[in-house]
Design a binder for these strands. Structure first.
Length: 264
DNA sequence: ATGGTCGACCATCGA
């Protein structure tokens, strides 16, 4: 079983690349972020032609999250409990969708960027992560054996070597102690980050600007935080760096979890 | 030496 997460940065601009990758990667469940469209503009048909059901949550041209699955897709939730809102008037954005696929509870998450330290969006980001921790604690309390994966674009680089040069990030978002603490608090709540053990040093994102990819000036901000039962099934992890190459690439690449079959 | 992008949509915002 393969479960992947990918910030596709517009599904309509990326449709051919995403479907081609789905076909050849052997991915059973794909969590997508930044689809950048409303539900009625999502290209469901090409996914269905490949045998995937899709649950999408998009309200407008911003954000947007989806889960595509060829192993079942049930119990879809379009926000997590207590998810904070943004804007005036504040509304809950399309940044979280959860679904059950082959007994796995998958959440596709697009954590707010934060923009700059001290920006209201930064406070929103911290509140969003704190609320996610609360929701996650609730799920594990209800069922300590739950098979849950919180995957997506976390917009946090938890360690200094998750960015190419810390001096560039002085006073910047993604690396600040409060953001890292909010990320660590979710781990402490019982969600192990499972990709780092398999891939100690890797980037998952390179900005389009300033030749970041050719220079390999990247960041590691896409992660999978899972319950204990889920973590025990992770046999391997891959980051498909090839998907950052060439014309029409997203600025993020897919992160793939290879899972052992369930033990009966 | 410095800067070099995309994608939403169609002037600017967001990342």
């Amino acid at each position: 079983m393969r479960v992947a997460t990918w910030n596709v940065n517009s599904i309509r601009a990326r449709l051919d690349r995403v479907t081609a990758w789905l076909e050849r990667s052997g991915t059973d469940v794909l969590a997508m972020q930044e689809t950048k469209c409303a539900d009625d503009a999502f290209p469901y048909l090409p996914f269905e032609a490949l045998g995937y059901e899709v649950a999408h949550h998009g309200l407008n041209q911003w954000n947007g999250v989806a889960i595509a699955s060829r192993v079942g897709l049930t119990d879809v939730h379009r926000a997590f409990p207590g998810q904070p809102g943004w804007g005036d008037p504040a509304g809950v954005e399309a940044r979280a969708i959860g679904a059950t696929c082959a007994g796995l509870r998958i959440w596709s998450l697009y954590v707010p960027n934060g923009r700059t330290l001290g920006d209201p969006h930064y406070e929103y980001k911290l509140a969003w992560l704190a609320a996610l921790r609360e929701a996650g604690t609730g799920w594990l309390t209800a069922d300590p054996a739950a098979m849950i994966a919180l995957v997506g674009d976390w917009n946090v680089a938890p360690r200094d070597d998750d960015v190419w040069d810390m001096s560039v990030f002085e006073g910047a978002t993604h690396v600040s102690p409060p953001e890292r603490a909010a990320f660590a608090a979710i781990e402490a709540a019982g969600f192990a980050e499972v990709t780092r053990a398999h891939l100690p040093q890797v980037y998952t994102y390179w900005d389009y600007q300033r030749l970041r990819f050719p220079r390999n000036e990247g960041m590691r901000i896409d992660f999978a935080l899972t319950s204990t039962g889920f973590a025990e099934r992770v046999r391997g992890v891959a980051v498909d760096r090839n998907e950052r190459k060439g014309k029409g690439a997203s600025d993020h690449v897919p992160v793939v979890l290879e899972l052992d079959p369930p033990t009966l």
